[in-house]
Protein backbone atom coordinates (compact mmCIF):
# COMPACT_ATOMS: atom_id res chain seq x y z
CA UNK A 1 0.00 0.00 0.00
CA UNK A 2 2.75 2.38 0.94
CA UNK A 3 5.19 1.04 -1.64
CA UNK A 4 5.83 2.79 -4.92
CA UNK A 5 2.99 3.49 -7.32
CA UNK A 6 1.71 0.18 -8.58
CA UNK A 7 2.16 -0.52 -12.25
CA UNK A 8 -0.83 -0.67 -14.53
CA UNK A 9 -0.60 -4.44 -14.67
CA UNK A 10 -0.60 -4.74 -10.90
CA UNK A 11 -3.53 -2.38 -10.67
CA UNK A 12 -5.40 -4.47 -13.19
CA UNK A 13 -4.72 -7.80 -11.57
CA UNK A 14 -5.97 -6.47 -8.27
CA UNK A 15 -9.35 -5.77 -9.77
CA UNK A 16 -12.06 -8.32 -9.99
CA UNK A 17 -13.26 -7.09 -13.36
CA UNK A 18 -9.98 -8.13 -14.89
CA UNK A 19 -10.60 -11.78 -14.05
CA UNK A 20 -14.19 -11.68 -15.24
CA UNK A 21 -12.88 -10.18 -18.45
CA UNK A 22 -10.31 -12.97 -18.79
CA UNK A 23 -12.94 -15.66 -18.24
CA UNK A 24 -15.15 -13.94 -20.78
CA UNK A 25 -12.33 -13.80 -23.29
CA UNK A 26 -11.45 -17.45 -22.82
CA UNK A 27 -15.09 -18.42 -23.20
CA UNK A 28 -15.44 -16.39 -26.40
CA UNK A 29 -12.27 -17.87 -27.86
CA UNK A 30 -13.45 -21.33 -26.91
CA UNK A 31 -16.74 -20.81 -28.68
CA UNK A 32 -14.92 -19.31 -31.67
CA UNK A 33 -12.60 -22.31 -31.90
CA UNK A 34 -15.47 -24.78 -31.59
CA UNK A 35 -17.82 -23.08 -33.97
CA UNK A 36 -15.95 -20.44 -35.91
CA UNK A 37 -19.13 -18.40 -35.61
CA UNK A 38 -18.67 -16.42 -32.45
CA UNK A 39 -16.95 -13.36 -33.85
CA UNK A 40 -19.13 -13.26 -36.91
CA UNK A 41 -20.92 -9.91 -37.18
CA UNK A 42 -24.40 -11.33 -36.85
CA UNK A 43 -23.57 -13.30 -33.70
CA UNK A 44 -22.05 -10.26 -32.04
CA UNK A 45 -25.15 -8.25 -32.90
CA UNK A 46 -27.34 -11.05 -31.59
CA UNK A 47 -25.49 -11.00 -28.31
CA UNK A 48 -25.80 -7.23 -28.11
CA UNK A 49 -29.57 -7.50 -28.61
CA UNK A 50 -29.81 -10.29 -26.06
CA UNK A 51 -27.98 -8.05 -23.63
CA UNK A 52 -30.52 -5.18 -23.70
CA UNK A 53 -33.13 -6.43 -21.26
CA UNK A 54 -30.85 -8.36 -18.86
CA UNK A 55 -28.42 -5.44 -19.02
CA UNK A 56 -31.08 -2.96 -17.91
CA UNK A 57 -32.24 -5.27 -15.14
CA UNK A 58 -28.64 -5.74 -14.04
CA UNK A 59 -28.10 -1.98 -13.78
CA UNK A 60 -31.08 -1.67 -11.44
CA UNK A 61 -30.07 -4.72 -9.48
CA UNK A 62 -26.55 -3.38 -9.21
CA UNK A 63 -27.73 -0.10 -7.67
CA UNK A 64 -29.71 -1.95 -5.02
CA UNK A 65 -26.91 -4.36 -4.18
CA UNK A 66 -24.38 -1.53 -3.87
CA UNK A 67 -26.71 0.21 -1.41
CA UNK A 68 -26.62 -2.94 0.72
CA UNK A 69 -29.91 -4.56 -0.29
CA UNK A 70 -31.16 -7.21 -2.68
CA UNK A 71 -34.08 -6.63 -5.03
CA UNK A 72 -36.04 -9.66 -6.19
CA UNK A 73 -39.09 -7.71 -7.32
CA UNK A 74 -37.86 -6.23 -10.61
CA UNK A 75 -39.20 -8.94 -12.94
CA UNK A 76 -42.66 -8.66 -11.38
CA UNK A 77 -42.44 -4.88 -11.42
CA UNK A 78 -41.40 -4.86 -15.07
CA UNK A 79 -44.11 -7.34 -16.02
CA UNK A 80 -46.80 -5.35 -14.26
CA UNK A 81 -45.85 -2.00 -15.81
CA UNK A 82 -45.32 -3.51 -19.22
CA UNK A 83 -48.66 -5.29 -19.09
CA UNK A 84 -50.60 -2.38 -17.64
CA UNK A 85 -49.17 0.05 -20.20
CA UNK A 86 -49.81 -2.20 -23.18
CA UNK A 87 -53.32 -3.06 -22.04
CA UNK A 88 -54.20 0.54 -21.36
CA UNK A 89 -52.99 1.69 -24.77
CA UNK A 90 -54.66 -1.19 -26.59
CA UNK A 91 -57.95 -0.39 -24.86
CA UNK A 92 -57.57 3.22 -25.92
CA UNK A 93 -56.75 2.05 -29.43
CA UNK A 94 -53.57 4.09 -29.33
CA UNK A 95 -51.95 4.53 -32.71
CA UNK A 96 -49.14 6.98 -31.90
CA UNK A 97 -45.42 6.52 -31.46
CA UNK A 98 -43.34 4.90 -28.76
CA UNK A 99 -42.83 7.97 -26.60
CA UNK A 100 -46.15 7.80 -24.76
CA UNK A 101 -45.87 4.10 -23.89
CA UNK A 102 -42.38 4.71 -22.52
CA UNK A 103 -43.50 7.70 -20.49
CA UNK A 104 -46.47 5.79 -19.05
CA UNK A 105 -44.29 2.81 -18.22
CA UNK A 106 -41.68 5.00 -16.54
CA UNK A 107 -44.39 6.70 -14.50
CA UNK A 108 -45.92 3.43 -13.31
CA UNK A 109 -42.42 2.07 -12.65
CA UNK A 110 -41.61 5.10 -10.54
CA UNK A 111 -44.73 4.62 -8.42
CA UNK A 112 -44.05 0.93 -7.89
CA UNK A 113 -40.40 1.67 -7.13
CA UNK A 114 -41.50 4.25 -4.60
CA UNK A 115 -43.62 1.55 -2.98
CA UNK A 116 -40.46 -0.52 -2.42
CA UNK A 117 -38.48 2.53 -1.42
CA UNK A 118 -41.02 3.64 1.13
CA UNK A 119 -40.89 0.40 3.07
CA UNK A 120 -37.16 -0.13 2.71
CA UNK A 121 -36.14 3.47 3.29
CA UNK A 122 -38.69 4.79 5.70
CA UNK A 123 -39.43 1.70 7.77
CA UNK A 124 -35.91 0.34 7.44
CA UNK A 125 -37.13 -3.13 6.57
CA UNK A 126 -34.73 -5.59 4.94
CA UNK A 127 -34.81 -5.04 1.19
CA UNK A 128 -34.94 -8.71 0.31
CA UNK A 129 -38.05 -9.34 2.41
CA UNK A 130 -39.84 -6.21 1.23
CA UNK A 131 -39.17 -6.93 -2.43
CA UNK A 132 -40.23 -10.52 -1.89
CA UNK A 133 -43.52 -9.20 -0.58
CA UNK A 134 -43.87 -6.51 -3.21
CA UNK A 135 -43.13 -8.90 -6.07
CA UNK A 136 -45.98 -11.00 -4.74
CA UNK A 137 -48.21 -7.93 -4.60
CA UNK A 138 -47.25 -6.86 -8.14
CA UNK A 139 -47.95 -10.34 -9.47
CA UNK A 140 -51.25 -10.34 -7.65
CA UNK A 141 -52.29 -7.02 -9.15
CA UNK A 142 -51.27 -8.13 -12.61
CA UNK A 143 -52.82 -11.59 -12.58
CA UNK A 144 -55.72 -10.86 -10.28
CA UNK A 145 -56.86 -7.30 -10.78
CA UNK A 146 -55.81 -6.96 -14.41
CA UNK A 147 -56.72 -10.57 -15.10
CA UNK A 148 -53.69 -10.80 -17.33
CA UNK A 149 -53.59 -13.03 -20.38
CA UNK A 150 -50.99 -13.05 -23.05
CA UNK A 151 -51.55 -10.12 -25.43
CA UNK A 152 -50.48 -11.14 -28.90
CA UNK A 153 -51.04 -7.69 -30.34
CA UNK A 154 -49.31 -4.57 -29.11
CA UNK A 155 -49.82 -0.96 -30.14
CA UNK A 156 -48.23 -0.32 -33.54
CA UNK A 157 -45.98 2.43 -32.19
CA UNK A 158 -44.38 0.08 -29.73
CA UNK A 159 -44.01 -2.60 -32.37
CA UNK A 160 -42.32 -0.24 -34.79
CA UNK A 161 -39.96 0.99 -32.12
CA UNK A 162 -39.18 -2.50 -30.89
CA UNK A 163 -38.37 -3.91 -34.30
CA UNK A 164 -36.67 -1.03 -36.07
CA UNK A 165 -33.02 -1.60 -36.63
CA UNK A 166 -30.02 0.68 -36.47
CA UNK A 167 -28.25 -1.52 -38.97
CA UNK A 168 -28.37 -5.08 -40.11
CA UNK A 169 -25.38 -7.35 -39.75
CA UNK A 170 -24.83 -10.13 -42.22
CA UNK A 171 -22.79 -13.25 -41.71
CA UNK A 172 -20.61 -13.51 -44.84
CA UNK A 173 -20.43 -17.30 -44.57
CA UNK A 174 -23.92 -18.43 -43.71
CA UNK A 175 -25.71 -15.40 -45.04
CA UNK A 176 -27.71 -15.12 -41.83
CA UNK A 177 -28.67 -11.59 -40.85
CA UNK A 178 -29.24 -10.02 -37.48
CA UNK A 179 -30.77 -6.68 -36.58
CA UNK A 180 -29.13 -4.22 -34.28
CA UNK A 181 -32.20 -2.85 -32.55
CA UNK A 182 -32.81 0.81 -31.86
CA UNK A 183 -33.67 -0.15 -28.28
CA UNK A 184 -29.99 -0.84 -27.76
CA UNK A 185 -29.54 2.92 -27.66
CA UNK A 186 -31.96 3.12 -24.73
CA UNK A 187 -29.80 0.61 -22.87
CA UNK A 188 -26.62 2.56 -23.61
CA UNK A 189 -28.25 5.82 -22.54
CA UNK A 190 -29.37 4.34 -19.21
CA UNK A 191 -25.93 2.84 -18.70
CA UNK A 192 -24.24 6.19 -19.33
CA UNK A 193 -26.67 8.04 -17.08
CA UNK A 194 -26.23 5.63 -14.20
CA UNK A 195 -22.48 5.67 -14.67
CA UNK A 196 -22.52 9.45 -14.43
CA UNK A 197 -24.87 9.32 -11.45
CA UNK A 198 -22.68 6.93 -9.52
CA UNK A 199 -19.40 8.55 -10.34
CA UNK A 200 -20.11 12.25 -10.45
CA UNK A 201 -23.04 13.04 -8.19
CA UNK A 202 -23.30 13.15 -4.43
CA UNK A 203 -26.45 11.06 -4.76
CA UNK A 204 -24.41 8.29 -6.38
CA UNK A 205 -21.64 8.48 -3.82
CA UNK A 206 -24.39 8.38 -1.21
CA UNK A 207 -25.51 4.99 -2.53
CA UNK A 208 -21.97 3.67 -2.08
CA UNK A 209 -21.69 5.36 1.31
CA UNK A 210 -24.94 3.81 2.54
CA UNK A 211 -23.80 0.42 1.32
CA UNK A 212 -20.55 0.85 3.25
CA UNK A 213 -22.07 1.99 6.50
CA UNK A 214 -25.55 3.35 6.94
CA UNK A 215 -24.77 4.85 10.34
CA UNK A 216 -21.70 6.65 9.03
CA UNK A 217 -23.64 7.89 6.03
CA UNK A 218 -26.28 9.34 8.30
CA UNK A 219 -23.67 11.01 10.52
CA UNK A 220 -21.82 12.37 7.53
CA UNK A 221 -24.95 14.22 6.52
CA UNK A 222 -26.44 12.04 3.79
CA UNK A 223 -30.20 11.91 3.84
CA UNK A 224 -30.31 8.13 3.95
CA UNK A 225 -34.07 7.76 3.63
CA UNK A 226 -34.37 10.15 0.71
CA UNK A 227 -31.42 8.61 -1.10
CA UNK A 228 -32.91 5.14 -0.75
CA UNK A 229 -36.39 6.16 -1.83
CA UNK A 230 -35.09 8.01 -4.90
CA UNK A 231 -32.87 5.09 -5.74
CA UNK A 232 -35.75 2.60 -5.64
CA UNK A 233 -37.84 4.93 -7.77
CA UNK A 234 -35.00 4.98 -10.26
CA UNK A 235 -34.63 1.21 -10.14
CA UNK A 236 -38.36 0.86 -10.72
CA UNK A 237 -38.11 3.12 -13.76
CA UNK A 238 -35.16 1.24 -15.20
CA UNK A 239 -36.92 -2.10 -14.71
CA UNK A 240 -40.13 -0.85 -16.32
CA UNK A 241 -38.16 0.48 -19.27
CA UNK A 242 -36.70 -3.00 -19.64
CA UNK A 243 -40.22 -4.40 -19.49
CA UNK A 244 -41.60 -2.15 -22.20
CA UNK A 245 -38.56 -2.80 -24.41
CA UNK A 246 -39.02 -6.50 -24.01
CA UNK A 247 -42.69 -6.34 -24.96
CA UNK A 248 -41.88 -4.11 -27.95
CA UNK A 249 -39.12 -6.38 -29.19
CA UNK A 250 -41.15 -9.55 -28.78
CA UNK A 251 -44.20 -7.83 -30.26
CA UNK A 252 -46.37 -9.29 -27.55
CA UNK A 253 -47.07 -8.78 -23.87
CA UNK A 254 -46.53 -11.99 -21.98
CA UNK A 255 -47.38 -11.47 -18.32
CA UNK A 256 -45.21 -14.19 -16.80
CA UNK A 257 -42.25 -14.93 -19.00
CA UNK A 258 -39.98 -12.43 -17.28
CA UNK A 259 -40.73 -13.88 -13.84
CA UNK A 260 -37.91 -15.96 -12.47
CA UNK A 261 -35.20 -13.91 -14.16
CA UNK A 262 -34.14 -12.33 -10.87
CA UNK A 263 -31.76 -15.09 -9.84
CA UNK A 264 -29.73 -15.05 -13.04
CA UNK A 265 -29.53 -11.28 -13.08
CA UNK A 266 -28.33 -11.12 -9.48
CA UNK A 267 -25.88 -13.88 -10.29
CA UNK A 268 -24.44 -11.84 -13.15
CA UNK A 269 -24.09 -8.73 -11.00
CA UNK A 270 -22.31 -10.66 -8.27
CA UNK A 271 -20.07 -12.49 -10.75
CA UNK A 272 -18.90 -9.07 -11.90
CA UNK A 273 -17.38 -8.49 -8.49
CA UNK A 274 -20.18 -6.61 -6.75
CA UNK A 275 -20.12 -7.47 -3.05
CA UNK A 276 -23.46 -8.95 -1.99
CA UNK A 277 -22.91 -7.22 1.36
CA UNK A 278 -23.01 -3.83 -0.34
CA UNK A 279 -20.74 -0.86 -0.94
CA UNK A 280 -18.36 -2.42 -3.40
CA UNK A 281 -18.55 -2.99 -7.13
CA UNK A 282 -18.29 -1.22 -10.43
CA UNK A 283 -20.72 -0.84 -13.27
CA UNK A 284 -18.06 -2.21 -15.62
CA UNK A 285 -17.81 -5.40 -13.60
CA UNK A 286 -21.56 -5.64 -13.39
CA UNK A 287 -21.87 -5.43 -17.17
CA UNK A 288 -19.07 -7.95 -17.72
CA UNK A 289 -20.73 -10.40 -15.33
CA UNK A 290 -24.08 -9.98 -17.02
CA UNK A 291 -22.49 -10.37 -20.43
CA UNK A 292 -20.91 -13.61 -19.23
CA UNK A 293 -24.30 -14.99 -18.22
CA UNK A 294 -25.90 -13.79 -21.46
CA UNK A 295 -23.18 -15.38 -23.59
CA UNK A 296 -23.40 -18.65 -21.70
CA UNK A 297 -27.15 -18.67 -22.17
CA UNK A 298 -27.05 -17.74 -25.85
CA UNK A 299 -24.00 -19.51 -27.15
CA UNK A 300 -24.61 -23.06 -26.03
CA UNK A 301 -25.86 -23.93 -29.50
CA UNK A 302 -22.65 -22.66 -31.05
CA UNK A 303 -20.74 -24.94 -28.73
CA UNK A 304 -22.91 -27.86 -29.71
CA UNK A 305 -24.34 -28.25 -26.23
CA UNK A 306 -28.09 -28.78 -25.94
CA UNK A 307 -29.86 -25.73 -24.51
CA UNK A 308 -31.27 -27.87 -21.75
CA UNK A 309 -27.80 -27.74 -20.17
CA UNK A 310 -28.05 -23.98 -19.74
CA UNK A 311 -28.89 -23.96 -16.06
CA UNK A 312 -26.12 -26.41 -15.28
CA UNK A 313 -23.63 -23.94 -16.64
CA UNK A 314 -25.11 -20.89 -14.92
CA UNK A 315 -25.22 -22.85 -11.66
CA UNK A 316 -21.59 -23.88 -11.93
CA UNK A 317 -20.66 -20.35 -12.94
CA UNK A 318 -22.33 -18.86 -9.87
CA UNK A 319 -20.78 -21.38 -7.49
CA UNK A 320 -17.28 -21.20 -8.98
CA UNK A 321 -17.43 -17.42 -9.45
CA UNK A 322 -18.56 -16.62 -5.94
CA UNK A 323 -16.42 -19.42 -4.52
CA UNK A 324 -13.27 -18.03 -6.09
CA UNK A 325 -13.90 -14.51 -4.82
CA UNK A 326 -14.78 -15.82 -1.36
CA UNK A 327 -11.62 -17.90 -1.37
CA UNK A 328 -9.59 -14.89 -2.54
CA UNK A 329 -10.76 -12.87 0.45
CA UNK A 330 -9.70 -15.61 2.85
CA UNK A 331 -6.27 -15.89 1.26
CA UNK A 332 -5.86 -12.13 1.09
CA UNK A 333 -6.68 -11.71 4.77
CA UNK A 334 -4.25 -14.43 5.66
CA UNK A 335 -1.37 -13.08 3.60
CA UNK A 336 -2.07 -9.52 4.70
CA UNK A 337 -1.73 -10.51 8.31
CA UNK A 338 1.50 -12.34 7.67
CA UNK A 339 2.88 -9.40 5.72
CA UNK A 340 2.10 -6.80 8.35
CA UNK A 341 3.50 -9.08 11.02
CA UNK A 342 6.69 -9.48 9.02
CA UNK A 343 6.97 -5.77 8.56
CA UNK A 344 6.68 -5.28 12.27
CA UNK A 345 9.31 -7.87 13.00
CA UNK A 346 11.63 -6.23 10.53
CA UNK A 347 11.04 -2.77 11.93
Amino acid sequence: MKGGTPTLMKKLTRRNEFYVFLVLLVLCLLIEIRSGQFFSPNNLVDIASAMIVPGLFAIGSFLVIVSGGVDVSFPALASLTMYATTKMLLDANYQGGAVLPIVIALAIGAVLGAFNGLFIGYFRLPAMIVTLGSSSVFKGIMQGALNSKQLTVIPPGMRRWGTSALFIARNPVSGLTSRMYVTFIAFIVVLALVFFLLRFTMFGRGIYAIGGSEVSAHRAGFNVIRTKVIMYVLVGMIASLAGIIRASMMQQAHPTNMLGMEMNIIAGVVLGGTAITGGRGTLTGCMLGTLLIVIVENSMILLGIPTSWRSVFTGVLIIVGTGVSAYQTIVMNRSKRVQTAKKEVAA
Binding site: T201, G204, R205, Y208, S213
Partner: peptide, 29 residues
Protein backbone atom coordinates in the same frame (compact mmCIF):
# COMPACT_ATOMS: atom_id res chain seq x y z
CA UNK B 1 -17.06 8.17 17.63
CA UNK B 2 -15.46 4.93 18.64
CA UNK B 3 -16.26 3.43 15.27
CA UNK B 4 -14.91 6.59 13.59
CA UNK B 5 -17.96 6.83 11.30
CA UNK B 6 -15.94 5.94 8.26
CA UNK B 7 -16.74 4.15 5.02
CA UNK B 8 -14.48 1.10 4.73
CA UNK B 9 -15.54 0.61 1.11
CA UNK B 10 -14.47 4.04 -0.06
CA UNK B 11 -11.04 5.54 -0.59
CA UNK B 12 -9.22 7.72 1.89
CA UNK B 13 -9.81 10.66 -0.38
CA UNK B 14 -13.58 10.30 -0.36
CA UNK B 15 -13.74 9.58 3.33
CA UNK B 16 -11.94 12.83 3.98
CA UNK B 17 -13.87 15.00 1.60
CA UNK B 18 -17.47 13.72 1.62
CA UNK B 19 -18.52 15.50 4.78
CA UNK B 20 -17.46 18.95 3.65
CA UNK B 21 -18.90 18.40 0.22
CA UNK B 22 -22.19 17.49 1.84
CA UNK B 23 -22.03 20.41 4.20
CA UNK B 24 -21.50 22.72 1.24
CA UNK B 25 -24.60 21.13 -0.24
CA UNK B 26 -22.85 20.19 -3.46
CA UNK B 27 -24.78 17.95 -5.82
CA UNK B 28 -22.00 17.01 -8.20
CA UNK B 29 -18.67 15.39 -7.52
Amino acid sequence: YQDFSIFPNLTVMENLALNTELAANRKLV
